[in-house]
Deep mutational scan, measured.
Amino acid sequence: FKEKSRGVLREWYAHNPYPSPREKRELAEATGLTTTQVSNWFKNRRQRDR
């Protein structure tokens, strides 16, 4: 994950830790990652924050 991608994901996570499938697609396009990578990032981040 590039620093820029992580920044976008972290910013989004601060507002909404549970993005919808459509939001995940938009995030994937914005970061250049796949929707699966975006989903996993959020899942792992939520797990880490428990």
Rank of each mutant, 00 (worst) to 15 (best):
Q37P: 03
T35N: 11
P17T: 05
A28T: 08
K24M: 14
V8N: 07
A14T: 10
E11A: 08
Y18D: 08
A28N: 01
K4Y: 14
T34N: 15
R48D: 13
R50S: 07
E23Q: 07
P21Y: 06
E23V: 04
F1S: 13
A30Q: 11
N44C: 12
K4G: 10
E11D: 09
Y18E: 10
T36E: 13
E23L: 02
S5R: 08
R25G: 15
R10L: 14
S5V: 13
V8R: 06
T35S: 09
D49P: 02
G32D: 08
F42P: 03
A14F: 05
N16C: 14
F42A: 02
V8Y: 11
R25Q: 11
Q47T: 09
F42M: 04
S5P: 11
W12R: 07
T31P: 00
S39L: 01
F42I: 02
V38G: 04
R46Q: 13
V38R: 02
F42T: 03
S5N: 13
E11Y: 03
F42D: 01
D49Q: 12
L9N: 05
A30K: 15
F1Y: 12
K2E: 12
E23A: 05
A30T: 13
T34R: 05
L33S: 05
V38K: 00
T35H: 10
E11C: 01
H15Y: 10
Q37R: 07
N44L: 08
Y18F: 11
E29N: 06
P19G: 00
R48T: 12
Q47V: 09
Y13H: 01
E26H: 04
R25N: 15
A30V: 11
R50W: 09
N40E: 11
G32V: 04
K24D: 06
W41V: 03
F42Y: 01
E26D: 10
P19E: 02
T34A: 09
A28R: 02
A30G: 09
S20P: 05
T34F: 01
R46C: 05
E23W: 00
L9T: 00
K43I: 10
R6M: 15
N44T: 08
R46D: 13
Y13N: 02
Y18G: 04
P21A: 11
E3C: 06
R46Y: 02
V38M: 00
S5E: 13
Q37A: 08
K2C: 08
R22L: 15
N44P: 03
D49S: 05
Y13M: 03
A28E: 03
R6C: 12
R50C: 05
S39D: 14
E11N: 08
N40T: 10
R6W: 06
R10Y: 12
P21V: 11
P17N: 12
L33D: 04
T35E: 14
E3D: 12
A14M: 10
A14C: 04
T35Q: 13
T35W: 14
K43F: 06
A14Q: 13
E23Y: 00
E3V: 05
W41N: 00
P17Y: 06
A28P: 01
G7F: 13
F1Q: 01
E23S: 02
L9R: 00
R22E: 15
K2T: 13
K2N: 15
P17W: 04
G7Q: 15
N16S: 08
S39P: 01
K4W: 09
Q37L: 04
R48A: 12
T34G: 08
K43P: 03
T34D: 05
W41A: 05
